[in-house]
Structures are given as C-alpha cells and as structure tokens.
Write a protein that binds this DNA or RNA. Structure first.
Lengths: 234, 234
DNA sequence: GCAATAGTGTCTTTCAGACACTATATC
DNA sequence: GATATAGTGTCTGAAAGACACTATTGC
C-alpha cells in the first residue's frame, strides 16, 4: 500500500439525483443544509464512500440511509472534482441517478421530515447548458449548495440523451403504467410536447412493452390500458 | 477539514483512453507494466490526482507526462471504483477520453519507447457488452491489466453513442480531412459499413463543415476535397 | 485509354408529424 | 346522451438506403 499513500488524498463522496414524476413534472429530492458550508441552502443527498464498498454500493447505501428509500434505478452520472467545489477541502463526488416511481417516493417522504421535493423547471429543448431551476411546492426557486445546480443540469441533459434508446424512462413509472403516463415522462424530460400517434407507434413497435389487459380505474372517463415493461419482474 | 478525515480515504487516479485512427482502425495507446501488480500486462496510462488539481487538469497533466502528447480532446468517460480492482488497495479511477489526430500521436510515439499501440477489434454493432480485444502490431491479442478491458469496452460504447450528435469524431482527424476519412472514423467506431451518399448528405447538411477548396495530394487517383470543422481554429 | 476512387442523381423505403376520426369509460 | 380522454387510419413530408451513374486524377 506504500505507493498509494505517498500523496495526500482527496475525499470521495457520492451524491444522488433522486428523481420521480409528480403531476407530469420531473421532481427531485433535496435536503436543506443544517450546517456550514451553505447553511440553509438546498443540497442533493450524499455521503462519503467507505473504503470497503463499491461506488454503486455506496449509492444504494446512501439511498437507504439518507432518503429511506429502496429499489431505485441506480446509474452513475458524472464525477465532479473541481478543487474549490467544497470549501472544507478537496472532495471528489461521483453523482448518481436514483430514479423511483412516485408511489415508493411518497411513502418514504412521509416517514421523514427533513427532506423536500422540488419540481424541476426544464428549459425548452435545445441544450441544457444553463443551470436548472428547482422550484419548491410553494413556488419559490431554491438556492442550491455546492455545484449541485451543475449536477442537476447535467442530469437532465443526460436523461434526454438516454431517454429514447434505453429503458431509463421507465424507472420513473410504477410497474404498470399507461401510454399517456409514459408520454408525460418523455415530455417532461424533453421539455416539449410529442405527437401522440407517433409516440404510441414507436413505443409499441419497439417491443419493450407487454399489455396487461387491465385498465386504469377511477378516471371519470374512458380508462387507458395498463402496460408493463417486458424485462421487469411482475 | 475534520469531517473529511474521519474515514480512511480511497486513492483517486485518472486513466486515459488515448485513441487515434490508424489505417482505418481505432487504435489505443497502452503501456507495458514494469512492476507488480500485473507485471508485463498492458495498461492505460494513468496517475494519481493531486489534491490541488481538478480532474480534467489531472488528465491533461498525465497526457503530457506519461504520453508526451498535447492538445487532445479530453472528456470524462466514467468512474471505476470496485473495491478489488487494484490489489494494492482501494483506488477509484476516473477514466478519460484523450483523442488525437494521428500525426500528433505519431510524433510523440517516436520520442518515447515504453509505449505501444494496439488496434481495437471492435465487435460488430449491437451492444458493446463484452470485453474488447486489443491487438498489437504483430497481431497478438494483448492481456490488459486491472479492469482496463472494461474501460476500453465502455469507451467504444460511449463513442458510438456520441458519434452522431456531437463533434467527438472529428477529434480523431487532423484539422483538414476528406469525407472518406470521416466516414472511416464512423465505420471503425460503429463496426459496420455506411452508405456513402447518405453519409455525405448528412454530414454536409449538418452545417459543421467548411470546404477548404484544397484537395488531397499524392493519391494516384482522383484526390478528394479537404474539409475543416467550422468551430475549430484554422 | 486504364485504374481507382471522388462525387452525384434518383428511386425506393422507412418513419415521424399532422389531423381527423372512432371507441369507450363515467356520470 | 354529454363529456373527456383513449386509441386508430391515413395522408404527407423528411430523410436513409440502394444503386447506378458521371467526374477527375495519375499513370
């Protein structure tokens, strides 16, 4: 181990971009900082990587410990390591997606109270370069700690890129979902409305979906058919 | 700094996937390991991240120090941090692309002699899940140290994804290039042949290219027109 | 003129967008 | 039947693939 300890080491953390869909909007979990630096500002849940655990493993642990949630779609996003990003010292953070259906999200929210949800104001399609606005339930823009605004901006940009050729979008929906809900996910992430017949055609022809034969309930109008992602377990 | 030092820290390194195009094949720079672990096997050039430097900065420095090259397209690829990936202890490595045109690559190769080039055997299009074969100039497959085979596989997969909607492919070509050379880059990365008229149409209509009015020389047949990427400096 | 590749014209096929239509649930 | 949304049929237009053709260079 001698070689590895010759230089002072940066600290390694994992931060989670914990997202779900609420009212057809992309929503992220934030935690208000109780201590310096950035007291009172809003931050992504995160924590140190332990020496004995892998990065994905650390993300899972932080999901459980800090947000009391489980079974999310965990996927690495990007690693942020600018020397000045944490005023306490050198910290390299590996940012992760943690995507969940709303139901599991809500259940965990009720059990804790130091967390808050923020709707993401997704800029109109055409590069998500600028920082993204996170808006609280009451409508004010939240001030983000560290470089977490950059992390959110990159998260949306990456989601946009992967949405159409991976199954990542389904991670924001429950096990059973309607095509309209799926379209809502795509529209919220892309920041524009999509053509209904074309969207349905594309999704159904892709072969990822199984129709369940069941339908929504309690709609007050014609209920939509519920679909399921093929590769998921029932 | 007290908080940051409560736990033992993993070491942080940067590894470079240093690529260029040679003879219409994607080629990567490897270094034969002189010491344990993995003596004699082939590894990506890499080094520790210093506490005062950013990650991109570390990648630039390693490019200069280990490979004696400059002016590459530097872009973060992915962070690998499985606990067992380095037998000496916990090492988290941030893998980077470092893409260069062949000319600058060759010049640096002549100045050093502990480095080797390996052609990448890109599997046929349709997910680059499996490990990629790196083949030496004499034709044998090289045995890769650490998880560097995984890193190479992910590099090709990521290149494939970004090739069509970013300018990353141009980083493998000189300042002036023909459409045939550009098509070679795309074919080498995608692992399949492309339709010539469609490829030309797409590239020219995209508006990224400027025609220089000049042509290749010394071809022995009709020389192709040389183009330049608009956003680059002359 | 020959060889070899650059570069193009055009037909076909595929697929996304538009839009109007039909279907079906609750009330 | 009224309402509101689910779901479809079909036309149009944009762009990719196929393929054959013409153009231009060195020899």
């Amino acid at each position: 181990m001698s070689d590895l300890d010759r230089f002072p080491k940066p600290a390694a953390t994992v931060d989670l971009v914990l997202m779900t869909m609420r009212d057809a909007r992309l929503t992220v979990l934030l935690q208000q900082r109780a201590a310096d630096p950035f007291v009172g500002q809003w931050a992504l849940p995160g924590g140190f990587v332990r020496v004995e655990e892998g990065l994905d493993e650390a993300a899972e642990r932080i999901l459980t410990e800090k947000a009391r949630m489980q079974g999310a779609w965990i996927e690495q996003l990007y690693t942020f390591g600018a020397p000045g990003r944490d005023p306490r010292g050198r910290v390299i953070t590996v940012a992760y997606f943690a995507l969940l259906p709303r139901a599991r999200f809500d259940a965990a929210m009720e059990a804790t109270d130091d967390l808050a949800l923020a709707a993401l104001e997704v800029p109109w399609q055409g590069e998500t370069g600028g920082p993204i606005k996170a808006v609280s339930a009451s409508g004010e823009a939240l001030s983000l700690a560290f470089d977490h605004g950059d992390i959110l901006a990159l998260a949306v940009k990456r989601l946009r890129g992967k949405l159409d050729y991976t199954e990542i979008g389904f991670a924001l929906l429950s096990d059973r979902f309607t095509l309209r809900e799926l379209q809502d996910v795509h529209e919220a992430i892309l920041g524009r409305s999509l053509n209904k017949p074309a969207f349905r055609r594309r999704m159904l022809e892709r072969g990822w979906l199984d129709s369940t034969g069941k339908r929504e309930t309690g709609t007050g109008f014609r209920p939509a058919e519920l679909y399921r992602l093929k590769s998921r377990k029932g």
